[in-house]
Design a binder for these strands. Sequence first.
DNA 1: ATGTCTTTGTGAACGCGTGCACAAAGATGG
DNA 2: CCATCTTTGTGCACGCGTTCACAAAGACAT
Lengths: 282, 282
Amino acid sequence: MATGRSTQHNPNPAAGTRRSRGRGIPDATVARLPLYLRALTALSERSVPTVSSEELAAAAGVNSAKLRKDFSYLGSYGTRGVGYDVEYLVYQISRELGLTQDWPVVIVGIGNLGHALANYGGFASRGFRVAALLDADPAITGNVVAGLPVRHTDEMEEIIRSERVSIGVITTPPGAAQQVCDRLVAAGVTSILNFAPTVLNVPDGVDVRKVDLSIELQILAFHEQRKAGDEYRDDDGPTEADADAEVPSAPAAAVVSTPERAVAPGHGHGHEQGQEYEEAAG
Amino acid sequence: MATGRSTQHNPNPAAGTRRSRGRGIPDATVARLPLYLRALTALSERSVPTVSSEELAAAAGVNSAKLRKDFSYLGSYGTRGVGYDVEYLVYQISRELGLTQDWPVVIVGIGNLGHALANYGGFASRGFRVAALLDADPAITGNVVAGLPVRHTDEMEEIIRSERVSIGVITTPPGAAQQVCDRLVAAGVTSILNFAPTVLNVPDGVDVRKVDLSIELQILAFHEQRKAGDEYRDDDGPTEADADAEVPSAPAAAVVSTPERAVAPGHGHGHEQGQEYEEAAG
DNA sequence: ATGTCTTTGTGAACGCGTGCACAAAGATGG
DNA sequence: CCATCTTTGTGCACGCGTTCACAAAGACAT
Ligand SMILES: NC(=O)c1ccc[n+]([C@@H]2O[C@H](COP(=O)([O-])OP(=O)(O)OC[C@H]3O[C@@H](n4cnc5c(N)ncnc54)[C@H](O)[C@@H]3O)[C@@H](O)[C@H]2O)c1
Ligand SMILES: NC(=O)c1ccc[n+]([C@@H]2O[C@H](COP(=O)([O-])OP(=O)(O)OC[C@H]3O[C@@H](n4cnc5c(N)ncnc54)[C@H](O)[C@@H]3O)[C@@H](O)[C@H]2O)c1
């Protein structure tokens, strides 16, 4: 499984110091644009004509300076002393994100999660049209889910080509994910949203984003444990009382509650939620 | 809705320059530990005794230097010339993440997504026990999902207290999310995994992580559009041909395919997948 | 014991992202 | 037309995260 094909990480000598010349929007900004768009859409529905960076930032849960800087990458769409025109900004962000066009997607693996995604209305509301649902199990294919028939993966290549699908969603068991990914990519898909807990190897030019519930919970558990530890041990001292273990026979599933990880209390503001993201240009 | 309670971002003058004194593990590292753990667990199941940073990094899809630095925050668990003991590392990371104890979780909102999560085996496999499924709809409460009865949200507080639940998962419609969040927090939950597309306001000391499928797709669409644009327009030039729009009447759902966003081709390696994460110490 | 070879652990440099703070821009009122 | 007030747009500094590159550490063979 862990074969290779490696992950490319050459710093691209051609790009040099600057961002990708002129108007390359920072990734961190791109990741926030949907957040702004959501807040703006809500304002738009309430017929609010303009909004200040402060108000919009509060609605989106970000710093107002950050928001202004983000918008500055898109151009100067605000009016000093007034704020931003809501409708105009909705359009500009939509355009920047590519939401002014229709994006057909396929969902592969119509089990528990695939069902939920197929039924999710938030798909279509942003221009993501479910072009097809695919599964390898003959007991599932033919079923109608969310108004769409589940097609067999044999038809994958044909569907992707005829429907011009460039985005694929993988909700198969982890063991099948790489294989499904390879087929999707071979058929022409260049963006993949992966829900299976596996590292996907893809060729250059293909984007992979992953959603991993288990990882999210583990990160929460880490902070939760740290909080619990702080309750017991609130003062200083690096606390060496831990390197005792000797490859225990039963490492998991036991209420141990070791309060040995003492970190400075009250370390303030939020930290980020980072995950890997593979990408490369063709 | 966009009331306030604000997001706190005071740089915490007490912490100063250093990380939180001694052994504060960087957030970026914490976010990768589950990834390493997954790869190590797979190796463990194949009875692989040791693994080098290079091999493990490939399996986890990260840079090997990054992996070594990450492990250095946990301590020196490797042997030079040999690598890392798989079992020992599995235990150390599990302990660091707090997975050596049991974490009861409640899922609120047993609709499409809540069903899928309740049926998901990856929960229990890492020590996250579903303590209860909660819903506000009397037509749903009482149903048995994944072997558990769906309880009414009236029982929320009692369940959280008696089961000592500290982690809550919100899979309600966005309109109910803040209200559910407030109740969870009031009842004692201090970590929340939010699937509803809403910004949650929480008091200090409560962690929120969010999973937003729609945002992921929009980020993919951005890069997809960029790729498509590069095909048409591969050379330089900032291309001013865009600031034409005049708050169009129908901004969405139309195959526009505007190739005006030209970014340097071949910009190399991956970028990050960042989302907000609120946290604060009590 | 000594040398060789592999691999870790980390110092240092660099780039990205964030947030402060403020000047410039423009609206608004007189 | 001018003064005032609001809010944008951004220069700047700082800290975090990533990656390179290499010395030190230890295994292993002779
Ligand atoms: N259910 C959740 O809440 C949840 C949460 C996080 C992650 N995940 C992950 O999402 C994935 C799906 O989870 P699930 O609970 O829906 O699993 P599931 O077993 O219910 O569904 C998997 C589906 O994939 C199909 N499938 C298997 N091999 C295939 C192949 N080669 N090509 C096409 N289809 C194939 C199966 O027939 C099945 O219908 C898993 O990898 C799981 O780890 C699920
Ligand atoms: N289904 C998906 O694939 C998907 C994907 C991404 C995001 N989401 C988001 O996840 C959330 C749930 O999606 P869904 O498709 O499962 O919706 P759903 O409508 O199927 O389920 C929502 C459930 O929440 C319950 N609920 C409503 N108000 C409640 C309250 N105050 N307290 C407790 N329960 C309450 C409802 O009774 C219902 O059972 C939504 O916010 C949605 O936007 C869903």
